[in-house]
């Protein structure tokens, strides 16, 4: 089974495209991960994240036809860390953002995401999809993640991660 996490960055939407792409590297990582995931995933996201997921799936296009339907559909999770990581961040600097994101990032890497939803809300972290990842995976969680992107270019923590395990 395959799971991908991408951030809910509205700059990824075609209606917000400028002449220059401010998130070119992130976009490339998201599209590669979504292509790897395959067609028709289940999407775990808040409403804005849903739009980002649909846009990425549309932009990815050209999925290989899978002969047999996988027993479990792939899952595309949309979520990201705090938007309060610097003085120029959308939510200005909150010192708690860095330890929060460090802990969440480590948990995601280990395939066992645990989120303090109340603190996430205070820190402007979009975790509606990430919270629902707890229902995925087996006794070992989702297993170790492959990390394609891990950065906070605008004071918002973004991850692109992939998980795959045999059921």
């Amino acid at each position: 089974m395959k799971v991908v996490l991408v951030p809910g960055v509205l700059a990824l939407l075609p209606e917000y495209a400028g002449l220059d792409d401010p998130v070119a590297e992130l976009r490339a990582a998201c599209l590669a991960a979504v292509r790897w995931l395959g067609a028709d995933p289940v999407v775990l996201a808040d409403p804005q994240g849903e739009r980002v997921a649909r846009a990425l799936l549309d932009a990815a296009g050209g999925f290989e036809t899978v002969a047999a339907q996988p027993p479990q559909p792939p899952v595309l999770v949309v979520g990201n860390g705090s938007a309060k990581r610097s003085e120029r961040a959308p939510g200005h600097l909150d010192e708690r953002s860095h330890p929060f994101d460090d802990a969440l990032g480590a948990a995601l890497r280990a395939g066992r995401p645990e989120v303090d939803a109340a603190l996430a809300a205070e820190l402007w972290a979009s975790v509606a999809g990430i919270v629902r990842m707890a229902d995925l995976g087996g006794p070992a969680g989702l297993g170790e993640a492959t990390v394609d992107y891990d950065d906070d270019p605008f004071g918002v923590q973004y991850w692109v991660m992939r998980w795959e395990w045999e059921r």
């Binding site: 960055v9 917000y16 002449l19 938007a83 961040a89 959308p90």
Partner: peptide
Amino acid sequence: PPKRAIRGLQ
């Protein structure tokens, strides 16, 4: 389109 737009879209 704007040259480069990220304000509020991060």
